[in-house]
């Protein structure tokens, strides 16, 4: 039911080229009792925030249900989720572009309608990252590894913004941006020169 509501909300927005101004007007436009609306959401903002979240949940499910998921490394799992998310969002690109033009994404901040997405993203990525620490795919670094998921979230926001501005055929450039940015993120999280540098810094500090 809330899925239906979202569809109607998206359609209504695209057809009028603006979002409904109140729950009352929206409910009226779709022939619904206003109080029926409150059974699903408490406000239009709440509904909006659910949209990206649902896309993400669908994308994550598509990936986790597909055959290669279990054999994937953490890096590949993250890549798969990013690709699937863009694929899912593609169905509603016009709406996503509309929202982008209404509230600009200014890294590292994000508009309200992405709040729920942020939560579900963090909830789903954390287990993947801790698994990756377990298998030594990425490096355990005191204090810093808690920030990994925030870094990945910024990476995700970057990809979404890139896609919304992408004008290449079939969004090929977005595919490239995902492949390259996620690889970079994992290289940075993996054992790298950074660790040697930190280690050396510590040594200098202790032996002055």
């Amino acid at each position: 039911m809330s899925n239906d509501l979202i569809k109607q909300y998206i359609n209504h927005t695209l057809e009028h080229n603006k979002t409904p101004e109140s729950v009352y007007l929206f409910a009226k436009a779709i022939n619904m009792e206003e109080k029926e609306f409150y059974n699903h959401y408490s406000s239009l903002e709440g509904l909006e925030a659910d949209i990206y979240k649902i896309w993400f949940e669908n994308a994550y499910k598509t990936c986790a249900d597909a055959e290669p998921w279990e054999q994937y490394s953490a890096r590949e799992k993250v890549l798969a989720v990013f690709f699937a998310f863009i694929e899912e969002a593609k169905n509603y690109r016009s709406f996503a572009v509309y929202l982008k033009n209404r509230d600009l994404v200014k890294l590292p901040r994000w508009p309200k309608y992405l709040n729920e997405l942020h939560e579900v993203f963090v909830d789903n990525m954390k287990p993947i990252l801790s698994e990756a620490i377990g298998t030594n795919e990425i490096q355990e670094r005191k204090y810093l590894d808690e920030k990994y998921v925030s870094g990945l979230w910024l990476n995700f926001l970057f990809v979404i913004t890139f896609w919304l501005n992408d004008s290449s055929k079939g969004f090929e450039k977005t595919d490239e941006s995902i492949e390259r940015s996620v690889n970079l993120a994992f290289d940075l999280m993996g054992k790298s020169a950074l660790d040697a540098a930190l280690d050396f810094g510590k040594f200098l500090f202790q032996n002055r």
């Binding site: 290669p68 590949e76 492949e179 690889n183």
Partner: peptide
Amino acid sequence: PLSGPLIVQTFVKQFGKTPQ
């Protein structure tokens, strides 16, 4: 080589199905 997920993505885009 291309990453596994990108291969899957290419198939999904072209045929609506994964290679598997």
